[in-house]
Design a protein around this nucleic acid. Sequence first.
DNA 1: TATTGTTATACTCTATAACTATA
DNA 2: TATAGTTATAGAGTATAACAATA
Lengths: 160, 160
Amino acid sequence: MSRHFCYGALMPASPEPIGLEIARTGRALSREFNEALTAAGGSLPQWLVLITLKQGDHRMQRDIAAAIGIEGATLTHHLHRMEADGFIRRQRGAGDRRSQLVELTPAGEQLFTRLLGAVIEFDDRLRRGISDRELAALRRTLERLRTNAASPHESTSPTR
Amino acid sequence: MSRHFCYGALMPASPEPIGLEIARTGRALSREFNEALTAAGGSLPQWLVLITLKQGDHRMQRDIAAAIGIEGATLTHHLHRMEADGFIRRQRGAGDRRSQLVELTPAGEQLFTRLLGAVIEFDDRLRRGISDRELAALRRTLERLRTNAASPHESTSPTR
DNA sequence: TATTGTTATACTCTATAACTATA
DNA sequence: TATAGTTATAGAGTATAACAATA
């Protein structure tokens, strides 16, 4: 039987569920991250689009959406905005005219550079006082948690 | 000079910024967490309200909002829904008639129990294959990251 | 028929501003 | 004046469903 948390009068202070703690930490960090990006003239989804475009050859919208982990319609929504703001261009694929090939404009490149600066700065701030070793351990545990979260639910709750 | 990540043709594969990785992990876990709560008939903000009510004597809305980390108006929104669903009751304070004292109804207690079950199950699943020692290290690092994220930005970017 | 993307619509969570009622 | 909470409104991010164009 594993060590559990509990609430109310059942027991004195007990550890918060790890999922909730990470969700909470994630929200807090996301908020700060977003503020850093907003101050630099962008947003989190925009940044994700930009790095996806810079990193590899994900130029079809389908690939970008998959890389970011959002639905195609949601991506369309963001790309509309980014295109209206002049950060990206879209053109139909020559081979397959259904596909839209996305590319950065010079303004988009500038935005990327600006956001990259904000990201680096934020990352430096976050890592203050945390050793490389500790950080590596963190990454390993996070990876494991993601795997566990995505794994099947197993026999814990047989009914329903 | 610290080890940095980078993108595009500058360098081969490099680690993702830790802030982004946590934000990503947080989103993924939040999503699963939410699905677990939804399947049990609740939601994340509802759960946060419930544990806040169960944990201590945060009965004034102001305190609940502060404990959860949302604005008062946002809490009002959630409480409206929870009251309409019969999970909580509100009554004006006897001493200070401006305040609303929130309490769980029997249905609210049942919801709490149901959600607690879902949370425990999810937590067990998440912690699979992670030692107590590793988990403790994770919590310490997360705490440090939250502190760092909330800390002043320091001299990294002197301009602007 | 299947795939790529768009449009229309809606939901959740959040926030700000203006307001009511108490203190 | 200050505080507790509400109402109205809005915005960001997300999703689903129905659709058009192309394969």
